[in-house]
Computed example of a mutant assay.
Amino acid sequence: MMISALLAILAGAAPPNPDWNCDDPMAQQEINWCAHQDYLAADAELNAQWAKTSAILKERDMQWMDGHGNGEDGKPGFFRAALDAQRAWIAFRDAHCRSEGYYARGGSLEPLLVSTCKTKLTKDRTQQLQFLIEQ
């Protein structure tokens, strides 16, 4: 089901040039566009994992409250802690990848460097979110 959703997203994103082919991109603009499509697919996977993870963490909050009276120990709940981390992670990802792109600042390679970085970090974060609910 996840793969079909990703394919639908990618199918809906028609390339600016109908001759572009992400199986064998040639020109820099084509390579940049394809790298961005890879990032969008990774981001869709991340968002799906976030939905699963946040739902389970909200359940853990309820279980914690049930098992510990009011649950008040001065710490944020499971979900709140993850939400704070996710927001901080997004800011980190965007700033870090922007700085990686500065290797080719202003050049045609910069978008590729940014998209590639964001794809890698987003895939890593998706695994981290999965790990949170496997503990």
Rank of each mutant, 00 (worst) to 15 (best):
K118G: 02
P18E: 13
Y39R: 07
P15F: 08
M2K: 14
L6H: 06
S99Y: 09
W50R: 06
L6M: 11
E30D: 07
L132D: 04
T119S: 12
E100L: 12
P25H: 07
G74Q: 07
M2V: 15
L109G: 00
E72L: 12
D84G: 01
Y102F: 03
A48W: 03
L57A: 02
E110D: 00
R87E: 05
D23Q: 15
D73W: 08
K118M: 14
L10E: 15
N70E: 13
A14V: 14
N17A: 11
W20G: 08
Q128P: 02
M62G: 04
C117E: 00
Q130Y: 07
T116I: 02
T53F: 03
Q49S: 04
T119C: 05
E72T: 06
I56A: 10
A82V: 03
I31C: 04
A95F: 00
F79S: 02
W50E: 05
F92W: 08
F131K: 11
Q128E: 14
N17E: 14
N70A: 14
K123V: 13
S108V: 06
H36I: 03
Q29D: 13
G71Y: 11
A55Q: 04
W89K: 09
N70K: 08
K123Y: 02
G12R: 09
Q37E: 10
Q29E: 11
D24W: 10
A27W: 12
S4E: 14
T122N: 06
A48L: 11
D38M: 03
